[in-house]
Design a protein around this nucleic acid. Structure first.
Length: 856
RNA sequence: GCGAGUGUGGCGGAAUUGGUAGACGCGCUAGACUUAGGAUCUAGUGUCCUAGGCGUGGGGGUUCGAGUCCCUUCACUCGCACCA
């Protein structure tokens, strides 16, 4: 802790002063009429949870450097901020505190906006949006109806987690040990209606474009590719032996069809109960289905879950072998992948193998590897490549070409066909919750689901009194909201009370920013055309799948509805790493806040504190640093600088209090350096003369500009900061040697320093700019350019190696001829020690860098 | 299990194209200034038996030359996970 603040640099006064000036001058308000090239820099907007945390600070500090840098480079920069304002926490807080979610949300937004302003971020606050604003969700509702009309939305029943007491659907993560997280009631699976968006219609395009998003981290693209999960295979029909019906399976291994000895279907499969009808075991079978469906989804999908099945007593006929295959209902078969039924090939699929061992099913080898295997010797399924055996006319074929051949055979006999399957499922957007955008539909007994006419949008959330006794969806109980008339037939009808998943709002907010006040459409087409795409998007890796995939999908939908021409919203994506910190634990009091663990003793009991692992900052582990306190102590500039310097943006950042102090020290050094030389900025300076120092200063200045510029371009902000620190060190060294002839140059070096630090620590830069009497604001000053010729030294030190080992260094004039370099190198005392009496068989010269003699 | 990533001093991290490993910062050591120093400044700081050797998780390879490329192995992190 600093126990005496340095004399002149007073961050809190400086920061408040400049934040006020920027705001008054509307410095970052977007220009509308301009010839400048545009740059759209966007950070993921926050959920207004109450206050900003360090993850936000890191996200926005990175975005701010990029925006301010682009701004100084002369781009017309769009750098907006807003609020992902719908969602569960607001509603839970409302119920708990008997306040309306809108009130809670608004006060959080006001508080967090003030916090962001304290960080000195260059947002155009005139474009601020909050997604709970009816002027925002109105357009979402309109687009929703248009999607419906285009066949991209449907309603379907499916099996979901349900709590009887709360009367609502629960997400998987809201089920704890099979019970409701809020009331503790046992959760059951219920078949329920929900609204779905047909994201699967876009699966192929979403997948294909992952190959074109070269500004995205490959990690995110790989995750999305896996999520979409395209696989090629076949659909094959199997006839039942007891009636004329058939059942279809999906398989990626049609080459193993001759080895299929039984079949497994999902408990939810529509045929499951029908199959049991009339069998001896009907009652047991139905009980088995119920017992599986009763389990919550998390449990059922658990890692080490034992495979369980029930033999229905029915059989299908293998279409190529004619064999009878018993049909099992099995707990591990998923209804929402493929067809919900699989042909089981126990010799060549590990799951089927385990299942067959347990229930005594036949194993039949049809793929033979080079080293022969026998069914009775198998301890696990053989899933590798090989030649087909016991497969009629396909016997002897390699299994890969056999896949195609068997599909062709099935196709020509109307038994099956080649098909593509996706892991991606349609997007279920129904939430039985209040605090979300109402789904603009009316349920009519005669007409079904009828969209609300456009002129009646938005469907606003009705006013509700919240209190702790509330259960279920508040909307269901608002008669005036629910009871309406059918827009089609005029008869009494019920309004839809499901609201939309909040990922809907975040799927298009970046488009709304381009014309946030547009009242005739979701956004103005021309404005979107000018601003899109987002040139740089920055956010957490946790959104790699959901938000980023939904946004890509929604953008394509808007394109197909005629709203835009763009295929993809985000050109470049930067996923910043987590902010982590050491954890502290007291043997008696558990997790401790950093301030409770000072000097290694628990503040409550004095016991020794256990220092735990470095983990992501979280309230539960108490390893958090409050941005407010940080800014109070050191100022926003120090907070920003430390965060940018400590780690490259994509990687984890480990919090370090002494690192923060180091950054604070650096800003003091900058302030003092310029303050010490204030007289250089007052009046005329002597004419320039050239000496050694001139060369050094020119080199330092131009190479630092080059390094900082190039590092910002490639988003290596930590090394950009390091370069500025190095520059300041060299300026201090030069200051001691300064004479009249290079005062003017030194002044130029200082001016350059202010400009270079401006995107990183804008307040101190602005203050020094003013104190040194420069005109205008530094935030509006052009970025500095470097002269490449100045970044090269005339005298260069070249490393001399003998057999790859460093033996000496020589100073040469730049671009000396190769032969001269060799002879100079050989004349070096230490080098000649290793070359004398040997035969030089090879000489290597990397110009201006390195010499290597290979000797024998 | 599948996929991706990471591994460099006491610590956070540099090394952009295969070319002097350890920039910059933290910490530490010594000194200066000082009533004092947790401020500031100066010098030093990978390691060892200090000629020189050894050093980027381990082993092997390619190369005049490898933190960087290839093979192999270990450890950790993240994502997905009965996806047929």
């Amino acid at each position: 802790m600093i126990w005496r603040l340095p004399m002149k640099y007073n961050p809190s006064a400086v920061e408040i002063k400049w934040q006020k000036i920027w705001e008054e001058k509307k410095l970052f308000k977007v220009e509308t009429e301009t010839n400048k090239e545009k740059f759209y820099c966007l950070e993921m907007f926050p959920y207004p949870s109450g206050k900003i945390h360090m993850g936000h600070v890191r996200n926005y500090a990175i975005g701010d450097v990029i925006s301010r840098y682009k701004f100084m480079q002369g781009y017309n920069v769009l750098h907006p901020m807003g609020w992902d304002a719908f969602g569960l926490p607001a509603e839970n807080a409302a119920i708990e505190n008997s306040t309306h979610p809108a009130v809670w949300t608004k006060s959080n937004i006001d508080y967090m906006r003030a916090q962001l302003k304290k960080l000195g971020l260059s947002y155009d606050w005139d474009r601020e949006i909050a997604t709970c604003d009816p002027e925002y969700y109105k357009w979402e509702q309109k687009v929703f109806i248009e999607m419906f009309e285009k066949g991209l939305i449907y309603k379907k029943k499916s099996h979901l987690n349900w709590c009887d007491d709360c009367n609502t659907v629960l997400a998987n993560e809201q089920v704890e040990d099979g019970a409701c997280w809020r009331c503790g009631k046992e959760v059951r699976i219920k078949e329920l209606d929900g609204w779905y968006l047909k994201i699967t219609d876009y699966a192929d395009e979403l997948l294909e474009f992952t190959n074109k998003l070269d500004g995205w981290p490959s990690k995110v693209l790989t995750m999305q590719q896996n999520w979409i999960g395209k696989s090629y295979g076949a659909e094959i029909n199997f006839r039942f032996s007891h009636n004329n019906e058939s059942i279809t399976v999906f398989t990626t291994r049609p080459d193993t069809l001759y080895g299929a000895t039984f079949m497994s279907i999902a408990p939810e499969h529509p045929m499951a109960k029908a199959l049991l009808k009339g069998t001896d075991n009907e009652k047991d079978g139905l009980e088995f289905i119920d017992s599986i469906l009763k389990e919550d989804k998390v449990n059922r999908m658990a890692d080490d879950k034992e495979k369980k099945g029930f033999n229905t007593g029915r059989c299908v006929i293998n279409p190529v072998t004619g064999c009878q295959m018993p049909v099992f209902i099995a707990n591990f078969v998923l209804m929402d992948y493929g067809t919900g039924a699989v042909m089981a090939v126990p010799a060549h699929d590990q799951r089927d193998f385990e299942f067959a061992k347990k229930y005594g099913c036949e194993l039949k080898i049809v793929i033979m590897p080079k080293e022969e295997i026998k069914a009775e010797d198998l301890t696990e399924a053989y899933t590798g490549a090989g030649k087909l055996v016991a497969s009629d006319q396909f016997t002897g074929m390699d299994n890969e070409p056999a896949k195609k051949a068997i599909i062709e055979f099935l196709d020509s006999n109307n038994i099956g066909k080649s098909t593509v399957n996706f892991r991606l499922r349609d997007w279920q957007i129904s939430r039985q919750r209040y605090w979300g955008s109402p789904i603009p539909f009316i349920q009519c007994d005669c007409c079904g689901s009828v969209p609300v006419p456009f002129d009646q949008l938005p469907v606003r959330l009705p006013d509700v009194d919240f209190n702790p006794a509330m259960r279920g969806n508040p909307l269901d109980k608002v008669e005036s909201f629910v009871n309406t008339t059918c827009p089609k037939c005029g008869k009494p009808a019920r309004r839809e009370t499901d609201t939309m998943d909040t990922f809907m709002e975040s799927s298009w907010y970046f488009l709304r920013y381009t014309s946030p006040k547009c009242d005739t459409a979701p956004f103005n087409k021309e404005d979107a055309k000018y601003w899109m795409n987002v040139d740089q998007y920055i956010g957490g890796i946790e959104h790699a799948i959901l938000h980023l995939l939904y946004s890509r999908f929604y953008t394509k939908v808007l394109r197909d509805l005629g709203y835009t021409d763009i295929d993809e919203p985000f050109n470049r994506l930067l996923t910043q790493g987590m902010v982590c910190k050491e954890t502290y634990k007291c043997p008696e009091h558990g997790w401790l806040f950093p301030e409770e663990a000072k000097d290694g003793k628990c503040a409550k009991c004095g016991k020794d504190v256990l220092i735990g692992r470095v983990e992501k900052m979280s309230k539960s582990k108490k390893n958090v640093i409050d941005p407010n306190k940080l800014i109070e102590t050191y100022g926003a500039d120090t907070a920003r600088l430390f965060i940018l310097f400590a780690s490259p943006p994509e990687r984890e950042l480990e919090w370090s209090d002494s690192g923060v102090e180091g950054s604070f020290r650096f800003l003091n050094r900058v302030f003092r350096l310029i303050d010490n030389n204030m007289e250089l900025f007052k009046g005329a300076l002597p004419a320039k003369t050239e000496d050694e120092l001139t060369k050094e200063l020119l080199f330092a200045m131009h190479s630092t500009i080059k390094k900082v510029t190039e590092d910002i371009e490639r988003y290596q902000l930590n090394t950009a900061v390091a370069a500025m620190m190095e520059y300041v060190n060299s300026l201090y060294a030069a200051e001691a040697k300064m004479n009249d002839g290079n005062k003017a140059l030194f002044r130029e070096c200082l001016t350059t320093l202010m400009i270079l630090i401006a995107p990183f620590t804008p307040h101190i830069a602005e203050e020094l700019w003013e104190q040194t009497g420069q005109s205008g604001l530094i935030s509006r000053t052009g970025w500095v350019k470097f002269d490449a010729s100045m970044t090269q030294k005339d005298e260069i030190t070249v490393a001399v190696q003998v057999n790859g080992k460093l033996r000496g260094q020589i100073d040469i004039p730049r671009d000396m001829s190769q032969d001269d370099v060799f002879s100079l190198a050989l004349s070096n005392d230490n080098v000649s020690k290793y070359t004398d009496g040997t035969q030089i068989i090879k000489k290597i010269y990397v110009p201006n860098k390195l010499v290597n003699f290979v000797v024998k």
